[in-house]
């Protein structure tokens, strides 16, 4: 992806729009995987966003790890609300050797908001999946310890869902004196 990366050898890529060998090799053989290229603030670098189906989720991430994207950076969840499938879960990996970044994401519907856990691939997914469970309410079957992480255990609901309100309460004016 830096300038010297040749972009012509994309003949093996079954997916249109991939001009990158490494990314193409990751999604090679997974039906329905799509790639978009995103610019970043540094003119020399881009990152690739790969969308896969939830059934391929763990295998794609494992393949990416074996292909060199071995540094776990981030795992996020988004509630798209009106757009079905409603939830998006993505994992952000980097390959330090090749200086490349890939975001692999998948979408799951409201009535089955489960994404298989990545803790078997990257141990570091542990806290991030707990956070996604806590705030958005995605279930990660297979996670060893899927409990709330940021909110107290008694909490009801998942505040970062779009149908959950901000929870603002009207400003209360309190009695007091001002020392001038």
């Amino acid at each position: 992806m830096t300038g010297e990366m040749p972009t012509v050898e994309s003949d093996s890529s079954a997916v249109p729009g991939t001009e990158n060998d490494l990314v193409a090799s990751v999604i090679d053989g997974f039906d329905g995987a799509t790639v978009t290229e995103h610019a970043t603030a540094s003119s020399a670098t881009v990152y690739h966003q790969v969308s896969v189906s939830v059934d391929d989720w763990v295998s794609v991430v494992r393949k990416a790890k074996n292909a060199g994207f071995d540094a776990f950076v981030d795992l996020y969840a988004v509630d798209h609300f009106a757009q079905a499938p409603r939830y998006e879960v993505g994992v952000n990996l980097i390959s330090m050797e090749n200086n490349q970044r890939i975001i692999i994401s998948t979408r799951v519907p409201y009535d089955d908001a489960t994404v298989p856990t990545l803790t078997g691939v990257f141990v570091g997914a542990n806290f991030y999946e707990r956070e996604a469970y806590d705030l958005i309410g995605i279930d990660f079957p297979g996670h060893p310890d899927l409990t709330r992480i940021l909110l107290p255990d008694e909490w009801v609901g998942h505040p970062l869902r779009k149908d959950s309100s901000v929870g603002a309460i009207p400003v209360q004016f309190k009695a007091g004196s001002v020392d001038l």
């Binding site: 970043t40 603030a41 540094s42 020399a44 670098t45 071995d70 540094a71 776990f72 950076v73 981030d74 980097i94 330090m96 200086n99 970044r101 990257f122 141990v123 570091g124 991030y128």
Partner: peptide, 24 residues
């Protein structure tokens, strides 16, 4: 790399990765 540790902590372990160099 497994735990997502970056910055000075990773560099102290010898991971040569600084976004100022890698993605300036």
């Amino acid at each position: 790399k497994e735990y997502g540790v970056t910055g000075p902590m990773a560099r102290a372990s010898g991971v040569d990765w600084d976004l100022r160099k890698a993605a300036p």
